[in-house]
């Protein structure tokens, strides 16, 4: 099956980014294709390369970059990003900024759009 992920909260404050990540890993392990993780609302904070969490904690921003290496598109909504100061110059590896039209295409194309948030 084809999956898309819509993540509506930033890292750490809510569990949403953790649950979404674990879901993506499990879906890929079951042989599914996860097309994209689309970041909306405060979810756009998942792709700032200015984050540097303590060494003994998970690095949520880096997790998304690593999923990018495995072919998952990491997409941040342009309107939500601009509002919150997420721009190309602070974008983490493998992330890109795009429009809600792309989310619409994803929603149309995938078998399941999974939503994670608060």
């Amino acid at each position: 099956m084809k999956f898309g992920i819509l993540l509506k909260e930033g890292p750490y404050n809510h569990q949403a980014a953790d649950t979404a990540y674990q879901f993506v890993k499990a879906a890929m392990a079951r042989g599914h294709e996860v097309e994209a993780v689309f970041l909306y609302n405060d979810g756009v904070y998942n792709v700032t390369n200015l984050a540097s969490p303590p060494q003994d904690d998970r690095n949520i921003v880096q997790r998304w970059s690593e999923l990018g290496d495995q072919g998952v598109e990491i997409l941040s909504c342009i309107a939500a990003s601009k509002r919150r100061g997420i721009a190309d110059e602070v974008l983490s590896r493998n992330a890109s900024i795009t429009g809600l039209g792309v989310l619409t295409d994803i929603a149309i194309r995938v078998d399941r759009l999974m939503i994670f948030g608060d």
Binding site: F23, K25, A26, R30, H32, R112, M114
Partner: peptide, 14 residues
Amino acid sequence: DYDGFVELVEQHKV
């Protein structure tokens, strides 16, 4: 577990 989570999503819309 998360594997079971994915399995439920395979079987049902969400």
